[in-house]
Amino acid sequence: MQLEQPTQAQGRVEEPGWSGTIPSAIDARVLGLVVVTAGLAASVNVPYGGLPVALAAFVLLVGGGVVVHLLGERKLRRITDGLVERWVAKGGQIDDVTRSSDGMRTEWTIHTADGEITVGGIALVPIAQLAVEWQGVGDTMAATEAEENLDALADTLYEEFFEIGSAPQRA
């Protein structure tokens, strides 16, 4: 048995590729930041309300922070899934979608024949930002705005990544 070799099924070779799902991207670093920030904020309550008030504030802040991150991750994941779905429907070749990370951003790398596209951003729901990067050039917009204009965004990015990007370049 050889690992990482394409499998042969009924006379044809199946290439490993995109399974049709976007992997989850719950980020432990963001959750750690939430816990540390909640701890610092709750510690302010110790001199005024005592340890019980500080613990209650800590639990409340951590719970709120986790919910805010989970909602932000879901929003970015929905946008990424919507973009990839629309690109595939238009004929774009998606090889794979993997989770990646850079700093405190939650990201997915979309592997195509023409290169890698990074989609992600800040996964905290009230300030969620979507960032798209391809060949070193990136753009950022509010995640809410991106979700509202997903069809137009997908069309614009498809033209840039799959039509213009795959055209032969002149020397």
Rank of each mutant, 00 (worst) to 15 (best):
E4V: 01
E4T: 10
Q8R: 08
G11H: 11
G11R: 14
R12H: 15
P16L: 15
S19K: 13
A28D: 11
R29Q: 05
R29K: 10
G32W: 13
G32K: 06
V34I: 12
G39T: 06
G39M: 02
L40Y: 11
S43D: 04
V44T: 04
V46S: 08
P47F: 07
G49A: 12
P52N: 12
A54D: 06
F58D: 00
L61E: 02
V62W: 11
G63V: 07
G64T: 01
V67I: 14
H69I: 00
E73Q: 09
K75T: 12
R77V: 06
I79K: 02
D81W: 10
D81H: 12
R86Y: 05
W87P: 01
W87N: 02
W87C: 00
G92M: 07
Q93K: 11
I94A: 01
S100F: 02
S101P: 03
M104T: 07
R105I: 01
W108H: 15
T109I: 04
T109D: 04
T112I: 00
A113W: 03
V119E: 05
V119N: 00
V119H: 03
L124C: 07
V125A: 05
I127N: 11
I127A: 14
I127P: 04
Q129Y: 05
L130H: 07
E133Y: 05
V137P: 00
G138E: 08
D139M: 13
T140R: 12
M141S: 09
A143F: 09
E145F: 08
E145V: 14
E147V: 03
N149R: 15
N149S: 13
D151M: 01
T156K: 12
L157Y: 08
F162M: 00
S166R: 14
S166V: 09
P168T: 11
Q169T: 10
